[in-house]
Structure formats: C-alpha cells, structure tokens
Amino acid sequence: MSGILVFGEMNPDGLGGVTGELLALARSLAADTGDEVTVALQSDSVGSEAEEAVALGADIVLKVESEILAEPQIDAHLAAFEQVCRAVDPGVALLGRTPLGRDVGPRLAFRIGAAVAQDCVEVSVNPDTGRILATRPVYGGSAISRVSFSGDGAQVVIVRPKTFEPLDPDASRSGDVRDFPVTLDESAIRARLVDTVTQQAEGVRLEDASIVVSGGRGLGGPEPFQQLQSLSHLLGGALGASRAACDAGWIDHSHQVGLTGKTITPDLYITIGISGASQHMAGCSASKNIVAINRDEDANIFKSATFGVVGDWNRVLPSFIETVRELRDG
C-alpha cells in the first residue's frame, strides 16, 4: 500500500476546478513521502483532460471510461472508484468535498474499511510516522480539530474546495496516461439520478463575485432584501443571506452562505444584520475584507470584520447606499 490516489472530477469544459486543487495538495504531500501521484479521471470519454492533469501535477493518469460515468451518478462513480482503489491500493486517497466527492469518499472508505478525515483545510505528513495529519474546522467552525489515522491502513482525506491553489500548469511535465478498464453495469446504480434542475440566481454567481452583500436574521423580514439587492447591483456584486434568513423563507436558499450553503471568497463581504454564527462564518471566512453592520456590539461577526458599524441597519443602510451611489456617480 503506497502512493497518493486523487479522485479527479471533470466538467464539460475540462478538469473540474477541485481536481487541480487536489493535485496541488497531492504534490506537496508527495514532496515529503516520495510517493507517486495517480489521478483517476472517470467519464464516458477522457480526452485532453489527461494531459491537463499531468501538467497540474499527476504522475499517472488513469482513464476510467464508461458510458455509465457520463453523468454524476454517485453509485456508478463510487463503484468505479472502488475498483480503482482496490487495484492501486493507495496509502492516501484524496477527494474534494463536492456534490460527488462528499458521498463517494466516505462510502468508499466504509467499503474498504478505511477511516476518513472530512472537510480538511490543512493536510500534512507527520515526519515521525509518515502518516497524514489533517486539520478541519468542527462545531461549525467554533473549534479546529487535528486528526490522524490509526493503524497503517488507507487514509481517505476529503478536502474543502477552494482551500488549496492549483499549481501553474507545466506543459513540460511528463506522466503516464493509461486506460483503466472497469466492469460496471446498470445494476450498480441503486439510487438513480433522473433529473437535474438548475436554479441559478440572476446576475453574478455568489461563488465568483468579488463583492457580496448579505443579510441575516437581524433584518426581521423579507422586505429589506430589496435594499440589499439594489446595493449589490450598485456594487456589481451578488446577494447572499444567512441560513436563518433562508430558513425563515425571507429569501431563496440559493442565496445561502455558510457551512451548508455556498462558500464565497469575495474581496469585500458586506453583512447586514448577521450575527456571525460559526455556521455562517464557515462559508465566508476566506473573504478578504468583511464589513459588519449590526446592532449588537458583542456580535461574533465583529471578530472577523475589518470594518464595522454598531448601529441600527434601518438608519445606517440608506445613507450608506446613498453615499455609495454618490461616490460611483461622482
């Protein structure tokens, strides 16, 4: 058992973003262990993505091709990756905490009897044992835990997306591209994906926005979100919300930022009436600058904010928006 195996995800445009992030992490671990980095690319057909994966750090690319893998059918991808894993017998398996990886990783681990470190934000090699040491936020981000794996079995590490920077593609890197034949049939799919419904909010995607304006429980109702919407338009940003505001039905869940919503990484994150519960901060703590408008000076959000106003948003917000508009027009 040795080597690092990456569960590579593909999207219609090429490698999924998380694959580059996982390869970068794999290379940094391999620098300490001397391991080979193998990536499994699972799809109906793998093309230039294989070379792309080599350029981003893979030593070996396994093309795992089957009609059945064209869609994100979790059961099929799990069955395929299980076959890869049993053949490669890696010391470490890396997956992203994506809609696919978050299910495939733990279920694979239960099948092969391995432990899982979930939602990791730092991963390193313990120089004394050669085993993985992983850091992950727990209690919704209120605490940080560091975990290791008992025994000497395989270590499944699931990584929080957007935590690691992909390497710059290096076209001069060389790697082995191989076919990995898998035996899959329809019966592997016991829970079948039959439809995907996209509900994309208008305008800039929250995940891509450089400015996000978010509202929370402190807004007291759905109406103020119109003011927040116009502020976000004014700034060319996107509109977010806390889980409390979404669960209350004030705004659609597609706007939810947090541990169980979207993870955002804007340059400027303006929060209004958000207390900053750790659950929420888990989705926005990578923001470069957080601005908090909140009535409660002890609110947790001020601990993470760069700029803050302690006051009633009903009075703060209109003059703030007006001044932003003047600055933009002037």
Binding site: G141, I144, R146, V147, K303
Partner: peptide, 17 residues
C-alpha cells in the same frame, strides 16, 4: 479508526475598525 490529536478554538487576528 480516526484519532483526535488536538482540539482548540481558532484565534482571529483581525482587528475590526
């Protein structure tokens, strides 16, 4: 199978103006 090595409260170094 998974061992907890350490558990701590994160410190934020941001100063709010």
């Amino acid at each position: 199978k998974l061992l907890l090595e350490d558990l701590f409260v994160p410190v934020s170094d941001r100063q709010c103006e």
